[in-house]
């Protein structure tokens, strides 16, 4: 069941299989009496075996890949002069190996740069135009699925709404959501308030207690806010430690209640090392004739005031 196997386990299996190929090659040379060709194959087999052993170790991610790639290249280069009609078949190995092991851009570059070498090695069996055509067709077609994934990854990045660290709305989408909520409040004749929340501990957590503590702090904070706000109230991260909570159909009094409830709930949540959560929050209410841009400016200013209380 490939999906249940991890990718690094499959890499190890593949490398082990490759090592087996090279070892069989060495044995074959021994049986055939090609004694000078045994040594390179043996060394390469050992290199690939080492890569197979290393591939499940987390500390050396790239090394096995490079070892296998270099061994594969050397094996083909050493054996190419002795291959007869089947040279055309083996010429396909280097570009496919690069495509499967390297990121798409690097693989394409390497395949194009090394093309003259591989083509030179197969010229005895295959004329230059035919060999070149086959090689480049293989290179281009093999890069297509990876190109598709790259493009999809880019699409995902441009459409992603959430802050990568906290899972809340990111800054741009928060601003977009604010404009929508202001329009909604105007058309439905509702009031709109926002809480600007500053979490000072977040600034220090990384330096004092490390990344894990900071992540825990952030997730706990998000959970507490979510538990204490209504469904549909948008929460977003405007700055590193400043968050906005948009409260639809809520006037000043309602916002005050939410703030009290929230600061109380945060104060009741102890975290190891850090202690209880402390947050400062400021209420901003949308004025009757205020534009979304102006309201956003006010929220930004409110956040700055919380960050620097003296000014």
């Amino acid at each position: 069941m490939p999906e249940r196997l991890s990718s690094s386990r499959l890499h190890a299996v593949a490398y082990a299989c490759g090592a087996l190929v090279l070892a069989s090659l060495a044995i074959w040379h021994y049986l055939m009496g090609h004694y000078p060709r045994i040594l390179p194959a043996t060394i390469l087999a050992l290199m690939v075996s080492a890569a197979a052993l290393m591939s499940e170790k987390a500390y050396a991610r790239r090394l096995p890949v490079y070892l296998v790639l270099i061994s594969g290249y050397l094996a083909i280069a050493v054996e190419a002069p002795y291959l007869e009609a089947s040279g055309a078949l083996w010429m396909g190995i280097p570009p496919i190996l690069a495509t499967l092991l390297l990121p798409p851009g690097a693989a394409l570059l390497l395949n194009v740069l090394l093309a003259p070498m591989w083509l030179f090695l197969v010229t005895p069996v295959l004329s230059m135009p035919t060999g070149g055509l086959q090689y480049f067709t293989l290179v281009i077609i093999s890069i297509l699925p990876l190109g598709w994934y790259m493009q999809q990854a880019r699409l995902l990045k441009t459409t992603d709404q959430l802050d990568t660290q906290s899972g809340m709305l990111s800054r741009d989408d928060l601003s977009e959501r604010l404009i929508a909520e202001v329009a909604r409040a105007r058309i439905l004749n509702q009031s709109l308030s926002a809480l600007v929340i500053h979490l000072p501990q977040l600034d220090m957590a990384n330096e004092q207690f490390g990344q894990t503590a900071q992540d825990t702090l952030l997730t706990t904070f998000c959970e507490v806010v979510q538990r204490n706000s209504r469904r549909g109230d948008a929460m977003g991260r405007h700055r590193h430690s400043v968050f906005w909570l948009l409260l639809a159909d809520t006037g000043e009094a309602g916002a005050l209640i939410v703030r009290e409830r929230l600061t109380h709930a945060l104060g009741e949540t102890p975290l190891p090392e850090i202690g209880t959560l402390e947050a400062q929050a400021r209420i901003c209410r949308l004025a009757d004739d205020e534009y979304a841009e102006r309201f956003e400016q006010r929220l930004i200013k409110g956040g700055l005031n919380l960050l620097e209380p003296d000014t």
Partner: peptide, 9 residues
């Protein structure tokens, strides 16, 4: 071996 690498990717 290459099929295994393909699956991994």
């Amino acid at each position: 071996a290459l099929m295994a690498l393909g699956f991994a990717k």
